[in-house]
Design a protein around this nucleic acid. Structure first.
Lengths: 228, 228
DNA sequence: CACTTTAGTGACGATCATGTGACCAGGGGA
DNA sequence: TCCCCTGGTCACATGATCGTCACTAAAGTG
């Protein structure tokens, strides 16, 4: 998966220029000229980096920056801001607000590329872990977090244990009894049908609208999670 | 312990100016005008950040940068390079070599300060420095001080130990028992629920009105403080 | 197709875990 | 000594989560 970059710039020509250059370097690029929309897009797409013009419609860049820094989910995304030459005060305020870098207009696209690259190089290592990965689903046992396609999912304790049980045994059909033993413990005297209900809850939690369900029902046998 | 910065700059007047400004901001500053010596000093002192002029005696700045990046020990130290206006090629080569930032001469000291600060904020969590940094929260174990966004916070002794325990183990879910063991000591016979109360007190102490709570409750498991 | 078996689904009451404010005890400094 | 800060515990409020059930839908079977 290529690193993704969101470009927030209301000068259409400049925006396209950036998008073109970034794409050529192998980034997935999205763009918008509107601050409000930018906030929405960031939350939807969780880009790996953001290029943010300081002077855009609706919402000043600094405000967008502040908003993003306030939210736990988005506060760690590297932001490069674009400022007009000579606006030193803005640059300082920007950096203090939490921008990670800036480039002064006019600038060379190559230079901007180099800066984005430097930021990504610095930000990325934190993404690595000893987590279980299954297609686009990622489960980190130590931090107890589950993500699909990068988006955080909320699972209850039982659903979490169950998903983990499945992900540690991919492509295997697991009987309800096995699941009960593995998730609830050998000596639990719980109805087998309860597993069904939890399977349902798990499906509900991990499958968003557009997703395919990774859990396969095996009639008269149990359930399995497969790599498709 | 204050963050330390090494200034590598052969223009004596500029060097002193930088040193003076950085000291005023509370950094420990060392300086040299020589590239060879710079390499030695970095290894001896392991500064938290380096400000590196691109055009210095003996060894070109880019070479110093390359050397530092080669060594595992030093490769993570943020480097800000100083370049003359218009040397765009140099800047790009610099960033590609591993510099994290640059400032174009002539520059305002305030801007440089802001950039160094931004870099430290970003780089520190990975360093095992004296002072722990977690987003905008900073904990200094030796002086027993905690700040958020620069503003001093008041924590009781227990809350302080607890915050420290968390900050030394970012992104991990810590059970109440683990927290009791780590903060109170292995042999304490304290009710697990007491941890909850202290978590509450800690939250109250570190979160001001506008802040996001860095402590995540993991139902049926414990608490975690996360970075990403 | 009619019938049987198995799985999906929504609801419900019970329980559990955590958040929250209050209380009291101990200890150190004024 | 007295008072203020702090720490450990408790009781209660508040949701979140759980296990079960009754009913429906779907899948096999002959």
């Amino acid at each position: 998966m290529n690193p993704s970059v969101l470009v927030v710039e209301d000068d259409r020509a400049l925006c396209d220029l950036l998008a073109w250059n970034l794409s050529a370097e192998g980034y997935d690029v999205r763009s918008t000229g509107d601050g409000e929309e930018a906030l929405v897009m960031v939350r939807e797409q969780m880009p790996d980096a953001i290029i943010l013009d300081w002077m855009i419609e609706q919402v000043p860049g600094i405000e967008v920056c502040r908003q993003l820094r306030k939210d736990r989910e988005t506060s760690k995304i590297p932001i490069v801001m674009l400022t007009a030459r000579g606006e030193e005060e803005d640059r300082i305020r920007g950096l203090k607000t939490g921008a990670d870098d800036y480039v002064t207009k006019p600038f060379s696209p190559r230079e901007l590329m180099a800066r984005v690259e430097a930021l990504l190089r610095r930000a990325r290592p934190s993404l690595a872990g000893d987590s279980l990965v299954f297609g686009d689903i990622e489960l980190d046992p130590t931090s107890h977090r589950v993500r699909r396609d990068g988006e955080a999912l909320h699972l209850g304790p039982t659903e979490f244990k169950m998903l983990r049980y499945f992900m540690e045994r991919p492509n295997r059909v697991l009987s309800r009894q096995q699941i009960l033993d593995g998730v609830w413990g050998m000596d639990s005297d719980i109805d087998e049908r309860t597993v069904d209900v939890h399977i349902r809850r798990l499906r509900k939690a991990i499958n968003r609208a557009q997703d395919v369900d990774p859990i396969r029902t095996v009639r008269a046998a149990g359930y399995a999670m497969d790599m498709s």
